[in-house]
Every structure is written in C-alpha cells, then in structure tokens.
Design a protein around this nucleic acid. Sequence first.
DNA 1: GTTATTTGGTAAATCGGTTGCACAAAAAGG
DNA 2: CCTTTTTGTGCAACCGATTTACCAAATAAC
Lengths: 381, 381
Amino acid sequence: MIAQKYCTRSLFKWLSDDIVFISGLIKERNRLQAKEDERVMAVTIKDVAKKANVAPSTVSRVISDNPRISDATKKRVRKAMEELGYHPNVNARNLAIRSTQAIGVIMPSSAETSLQNPFFPEVLRGIGSMALETGYSLYVSTGGDDTQSFEEVKRMVYGNRVDGIILLYSRRNDPIMNFLVKEKFPFVLVGKPYKRESQITYVDNDNIQASKKVTEHLIELGHRRIAYLGGTTDLVVTTDRLDGYKQALLAAEIPINEKFIIHDEFLRSSGRKAVEKLFSFSEPPTAILVADDMMSLGVINMLEELGIECPEDVSITSFNNLYLSEITRPSLTTVDINIYSLGIQSAKSLIERLKSKDEPVKRVIVPFEIKYRNSTRALTE
Amino acid sequence: MIAQKYCTRSLFKWLSDDIVFISGLIKERNRLQAKEDERVMAVTIKDVAKKANVAPSTVSRVISDNPRISDATKKRVRKAMEELGYHPNVNARNLAIRSTQAIGVIMPSSAETSLQNPFFPEVLRGIGSMALETGYSLYVSTGGDDTQSFEEVKRMVYGNRVDGIILLYSRRNDPIMNFLVKEKFPFVLVGKPYKRESQITYVDNDNIQASKKVTEHLIELGHRRIAYLGGTTDLVVTTDRLDGYKQALLAAEIPINEKFIIHDEFLRSSGRKAVEKLFSFSEPPTAILVADDMMSLGVINMLEELGIECPEDVSITSFNNLYLSEITRPSLTTVDINIYSLGIQSAKSLIERLKSKDEPVKRVIVPFEIKYRNSTRALTE
DNA sequence: GTTATTTGGTAAATCGGTTGCACAAAAAGG
DNA sequence: CCTTTTTGTGCAACCGATTTACCAAATAAC
C-alpha cells in the first residue's frame, strides 16, 4: 500500500517533497544549532568584563588574582563571574599561555595487552591521584602498535596537548623515548633508562637488588636449580631482574644454566609456555624466579595442569605484589614494588619539572619489600 | 673521613663554592631556556605559508584537504610542511573550531577503589581502542571524592576540554549525569539510566535477564536458599541484578528471604564481611549470587578461612568474567558481560553522536554469556 | 603648589589556527 | 570577442583567553 502510494507520485511531486523535507531538516538543525550554541557560546571574559564594567584584561587579572587589581574591583568582577556562570575556556587559555594543565601517560604499545596487567591501572591510579591533587588532567595513550603509539606521542607533543609525559615502561632504544629526548620534551620514566641514565629523570625500584635478595632467599632455602622467567629482553626491568638473579647465583657460587633463563612477554600465557619447557628437562628447576605476577599466574596454572605441586615440587617467587598474588593458590611470595608509589612519584617529579624549568634531573628509587607467602619452601630432599 | 674533609673547610670556602655552583646553574638554565624556546616556538601555519608562497588560509585549507585548492598548490604546501616539520597546534585549532578531538571518561568517584576493579581498565581498553581508530584522544577523570569528580567534569565541560563524555557507571540521582543532561552535553552511559531512559544514549547488558538466567541455573541445580550479594543500592546495575534474582525466585515460587539480600561496595573486602553474616544464620544459604567477580574473590577467601567448602557446601555464581574468575580456586561460574565490547560500543555511540548532532538517542544492549565453571554444583542433600 | 611616584586600570597585540567573502584569472558560453 | 561562470587564493575577522605597554588619578615628596 505504501509502495503504491509512492509509485503513483509524479517526479515533480517527489522533487517538491524533497525540498520540503530538506528545508524541514535545515530548520530542525538550526533549532538544534541554536540550543547547542546556547551551550557552546558560553560566557566569555568579555561578557564578564561588560557586566562588571571593566576591561577584559582586568577580568583576566582577577582570575589570576593579580595584586594590581583593587579588592573592590575584584569583588565586583567575581560577582559578575558568579552571576554569569563564567568558566574560562581552556583552549584559549592554553593557546595564550602555551601550556595545558595536562600530562600524557604512555603505556607500552598495545595497551591491548598492557591494560590486562593490573600493574598499569595501579600506576595510573597513583598518577591520577597526584594529578588530581595538583589540578592536572590526564591524557592517556591507548596504545595500538608501535607506530600508532608514536603517532599519539607526536600528537601530544607537537600539538601541545600535554605539558609533559610519563612513560610507563623502559626498554632499550625506544623510539618514543629517543624522540622525547631529541625534542627536549619534559618527561619522566617509570623504570630505569637503558642509557643516558644521568640525563633522564626516572622513578624506579632497585630491581637488581630486589631480584638479588629474592634469589638469595631461594638459595637460603636450599635451592640450587633456580630458573629465571622474565619479560622480553628489551625491557630494562627484565634485564635488571636478571642481573640481580645472576649476581646472587654468582655470589653463592652456583653456576648459571642458560637453559634456565627464559624470556617472553609479561602475559599469563607466556608463563604457561615457559613451564612446559622448563619441565621437559631431565633435571628441571626446583625453584623459579618469575619477573611478573601475571606470568606467575600462568606458571601456577600450568603447573597444576602438569600435576606439579607448588611449593612441594617447585618454589616460585614473583614480582609486583598485585592483589592477585594473594589470592592464587598457593599465594605468591613476591616482591612488593609499591606500584602506587611509582605512580605518585613519577607524577610528582614531572609536575615539579613542569613548574620550574631548571628542576634538576632526578632519580627516585621507590623501596621494595619482599612479601613472604606460600609459594616457596625449603628444599629438604 | 669525608665528614672531616667538609668540616675543615672555612665558611668562606663553602660560600664561594655555592656561588660557583649557582652561577653555573644559571648559565645552564639559560642554555636550556634558549633551546626550550626553540622547541616551544614551533613552526606555525604562517611559516609554512611563507615558505610555500601562499596565504595562511590556503595552508589551512590544504590541511583540511579542501577541494577548492588545486593539486599543484597542495603538493607545494605539503612539501613545505614536511620540510619545516610542521604540526598544527591543537589548542589554536580547537579554539577556532570549538572542538577538541577528545573524549572524557568518568570513573565512579574514587578511582582509588575503582581502578582496583579490573572492570574499569577493561572497559577503558575498549574505549581506547575505538578512540585510537577514530583519532580521538582520551581524557580520564581520576576520581577523588564526589565533589572532586564533579569538579573535573565541570572542567571538562565548561573548559571545552572534551567533545563528549562517557560515564562508566550509572546510579540513581547522580549529580554528574544530571549536570550533563542539564547542560545538554553529549555523553553516553555505560549502564542503564535510573530514569529518563528514553532520552539518554546508553550501552548496557540486559542485567535483569542475565541475573534471572543465572539464578534459574542455581534453582535447576536444586538450590532454594539462595543469597544475593550486590553492590551499593544506588547503582542501577545492583538493582537490576537484584530484580532478575527476585524474578527467578518468584517464578520458581521460592519465597524471598530479605536476610539473604546483602548490599555493600564492589570490593573484595565487602565479600568477606557478607559471608560472615550469611553464615551466622542457623540456616545459611546453599548458594550465593554475587554481583561482581571482585566481591566473589572476597567471598571465596572468607569461605576458605571459615572452613566452608565451595562448591561442596555452597555454590557461587558471579558476574563480569574478569580474567581472575578463571584462576580462583574453584574457578567461578560467572556471567561474561563482555566488558571490552561495552567499551567499544560506548565509544562508538558517543563518536557517532559527536559527528552528527542529530544522531538519535540510542540504546545498545551487549549480549552476555554464562560461563559455567566449578563454583556451582547440584544440591544432593 | 608643583613634581615625582604609586596605584588601578585599559587598549591593543598576541597565541595559531579557521572561514566567510571578495576578487582576480581562467574556462565556458553565446 | 565579449560576457558569464568556475576555479583558486588572499584578506581579514573571528575563537577566548593573556600580557605588554601605556595612561590617568591619587598620593607622596620636596
């Protein structure tokens, strides 16, 4: 029926209909536009100025509480602002003062996988809380692949989107970090720089020491066949923890077995693969030093599948003390690296740097603490 | 030895040392300042214009790939941009076009606790991936208390920091949502609005149905004393899930025992408290419907402490299917609400809305799926 | 009672873009 | 060959703040 109705219409009718329709649309849009404009066309500094009978510049000075303005005028202007519901436009402000009050947070490329690791939310939480306190906003890069990540950083830097950047990872020859250094863009690193250590402000744990201590613990428990399971080798944190591990072995005069050193991504799945490999050896390790709690999770899962008991057959120590390290069965002996504090400190350092250009380069070492739980036991065999 | 060295120095020596140090610092600062300015004084559209022998407006048109510019000119201008390493200043651009290419993400106040729940990182991941694809940036609110949260939203809205907002929670009479509605600011809600449902674009699961289904599952397993453990009552998700639970009980003609309905925050600790209470009854529940995986975690922990076996003594079903619901012992039977997809869809809806003002109000229902695992079992006693 | 200083405030330039309008030159039409 | 139209650019006015330089009135100094 409807079809028929349309079919009987002349072309002319169609056209005129269209015209009506279009004009209707335009009208509707204008109406919306008007309402929208009402919102968008917010009150400006000029409106306030007019209302308070002063110049815009005076209003600006009132905003920044400039002492050159008399209290009487200030009061008057503030009242006008209040009445008009004035809020300064950040874009205009940023343009004029060439600053945003925002800091960028860069996750390792592919937030896809990284946001999976509670490390990042936790450090974000620390950064966020500091940002909140100091009135900064947070811009987070959302990863993608390396190229996209880089593009995002460029957008942040070149586009003046942020005043400074926090890099949530440190790896060797990271193009993003090199870029930031080259551009002399203020940034701080969470983790230890691969090189140019003295020129980069960074916040880190003493991972070498932590790893050494925890390895020593295993050694004290009588373990000698200790495996190391770390993230990709280009991450500095991985190599640092490996170093600590080696130092402890050396000090205890235990030969280093390269087969016992495995690298993969900080994912749950990597842990699983590694376990399969380690226990295919005729003399498998009696203890594993895992460089990340998420990975340990995979390890534990896989051990269970393989029918290997932890800690009876193999001891595990881990890193990060994510909340999940308490809830695994067995709960994990892990190094609490104080992630939240890493976030706080990095934000703090960055903001200090932003506030005064000649803030010196800093290194902040956040203390760690080993949490002894149930995934390790003394070797008695 | 070192101490002595310092002590033997005269005051004068100290002072002069300091002076040298300071002047050195200043010199260093000037050098940095110069370089810094070099960076900040980035190439502008005018520089490009000059170099390409065109007007700034032309350059601007080249950037937006305006068809009115000839290809020849475009090529020339692009070359100039390339050579000068030109990148447009976002602030200026935003000021002119009255838009940022950014969307704000609001967590429930106190990200403190919310970032603890992997739900948020996961939904953030979805949003981020969509944002990346469409060239939007992400602004995340970092919580604090209610007031601070509100302030941040105001800053985003009034300050023109973002084009639109995604609210990651829905609760009744949320001042922030009311504010956004009042201001006619584009936003989408993750969750179901408490009221004005037809006027708000939102993305949600059918929580009532999901809850009903999972309750029915428990009933089918023979359970009749089923407890419900949900978040604070002002969260719509809590009440929806409670509704589904009640509907299922009613349909099965099981009387509703108000003592078996407990509300608290979506925290691990809340789960623990609730368990204590539930098992202080003379007739404790044989099954618990928990509205959040994190909470379930607390429940499981507490059960273990109390020596109550799951699923032997009590069955548990949960919501969200966080990765941790697989690794708990027992693994959790839980409703997979497809968090990532919630993120994707909410970002998509918002961006559509931003691209065309008269995009209609939408409701997107993300499907759920029950994951049957080991925390439930048939009641045989 | 002049002149020198403060004090309080304004006008206008600037930040780095976008965009409506005017206006030549080139192409099309008559 | 002279209009008319199209095509390609430039001019100038914004966007909404900050900030420099300058000025008038009030106060202080001589």
